[in-house]
């Protein structure tokens, strides 16, 4: 039995930070219709800021909040590039993402106080001790890092975020942001300042991704400039899987689907590895998964049609 508990905890600890990432990408990609490539950048910035502060013995909660804020600033920059400098959405995301790779290195280098601030080509590693505490260890003895506590803390954070998003996007301004993403011309004709609404939306989205990065780094204890690579794809896959399996009937249903989608994603990955899929070929597995997720609505429709065909044939025979 402990084996199963172990697997579940493992899935939760790697899946829950990605829930936040997926929610962030969902907000831009689905709600704002903004293909935002900043995601990986703000994830990395969130992770490196948090790691840097914890490495120097800072308050883990402050570190998490600042990580979140770092992500928000990345999003804000992307939004401004797109809205004020009229750079296409995709490109403004790429610009910010490119900049964050260097910025993260700088932050990590400053944190370790090496002779050269760029010494951190090597990953920045924190190791929970009495001076370096993470938000998972402050509730527990630092020398006893308990994965169950970790997953509970993560679950609480994700739950707060989900409830927060649900309520924010039900408020007057949240509604205005949603309108901006869905029909910008109409939003403007209804007196919504779409420039501001769009920037606010991207900022919130990237704040969530930064928070995801902060949670991630406190669990893995290590961050390097390449550790965020591939997370954009994971987030997208989570959204697609969640929508295909759990539906998107209403806004509430939709955000919960996205969270469950990212958990499902890690369930599939973990099971695949468990049943002997070589870990070296993980990227191949990601690609296959996304393809299947994209086809799922079609497959679903096909199955339903097939079922009705069989049913009508049976009725005819009877």
């Amino acid at each position: 039995m402990p084996d199963i508990v172990n697997i579940i905890v493992n899935i939760l600890t790697s899946g829950l930070p990605c829930c936040l990432l997926a929610l962030g990408i969902f907000l831009t990609y689905r709600i704002l219709d903004f293909a935002d490539l900043t995601a990986e950048g703000s994830f990395l910035i969130g992770a490196s800021i948090t790691a840097a502060i914890i490495y120097n013995g800072g308050n883990p909660f402050l570190a998490t909040i600042l990580g979140c804020l770092g992500g928000a600033i990345c999003g804000f920059i992307t939004g401004c590039l797109n809205r004020y400098l009229k750079i296409p959405k995709l490109l403004s995301g790429i610009i910010t993402m490119t900049a964050t790779a260097s910025l993260a290195m700088l932050i990590m280098g400053l944190a370790t106080k090496e002779d050269s601030v760029f010494a951190s080509q090597i990953p920045l590693t924190i190791s929970p001790t009495s001076t370096q505490q993470t938000i998972y260890t402050v509730f527990w003895n630092w020398d006893l890092t308990n994965p169950i506590i970790t997953s509970i803390v993560m679950l609480v954070v994700v739950a707060i975020v989900v409830v927060g998003i649900y309520f924010f996007f039900g408020t007057e301004y949240g509604m205005a942001i949603r309108t901006t993403g869905l029909n910008e011309n109409m939003a403007r004709s209804q007196g919504i300042n779409t420039t501001v609404a769009s920037i606010v939306g991207v900022t919130i989205s990237n704040a969530l991704i930064g928070l995801g990065g902060a949670l991630y780094v406190q669990q893995t204890w290590t961050v390097s400039t390449i550790s965020a690579t591939g997370y954009l794809v994971i987030g997208l896959a989570s959204i697609l899987i969640g929508e295909a399996i759990f539906g998107k009937r209403s806004f509430k249903n939709w955000i919960i689907s996205v969270c469950l989608g990212s958990i499902t994603y890690f369930v599939i990955i973990t099971l695949a590895v468990k049943f002997g899929f070589p870990t070296e070929l993980k990227s191949l597995l990601y690609a296959i998964l996304i393809t299947i997720a994209l086809c799922l609505p079609m497959i679903k429709k096909g199955i339903i049609e097939l079922w009705f065909k069989c049913k009508s044939r049976r009725n005819k025979n009877a």
Partner: peptide, 26 residues
């Protein structure tokens, strides 16, 4: 907005050109 309900569309319209509060329920 095609993806929003009739009610939501009308809620947006009744606030045309007004301040959209980020706290008040829509």
């Amino acid at each position: 907005v095609a993806e929003m309900s009739v009610l939501e569309n009308m809620e947006i319209a009744i606030r045309r050109g007004k301040f959209h509060s980020p706290i008040k329920w829509g």
